[in-house]
Amino acid sequence: MLHTVNKSPFERNSLDSCLRLAKKGSAILLMEDGVYAAVTGTTATDKMASAAKGNSVYVLGPDMSARGLAEDQLIDGIKVVDYEGFVDLVADNDGVTPWL
């Protein structure tokens, strides 16, 4: 299962709910305002870093760039994908659960 999170962890509980309800080992894609959870130095970094150990965590590159986030700020273990990578994630997983 691929879980998509499109909300900033500082605005809504979408990320928390995703991390609570995504089965260990599943894939998580941070997109739109969800990308703010992918960088170091925030109050969300610890939980995201810990999630990146038990799950495959991805972040949508075009959404990062739009928001001025750079790859060298990324939490270890989080991989950057473009829209084609997003498509691959959808194809490679059995389904998609949106956390809006």
Partner: peptide
């Protein structure tokens, strides 16, 4: 919201990949 933009980019990429 960005939803429609994200969906559009996703669909274009999916079609380009032959889906």
């Amino acid at each position: 919201h960005q939803a429609s933009d994200s969906a559009y980019q996703f669909v274009v990429a999916a079609l380009a990949k032959g889906h």
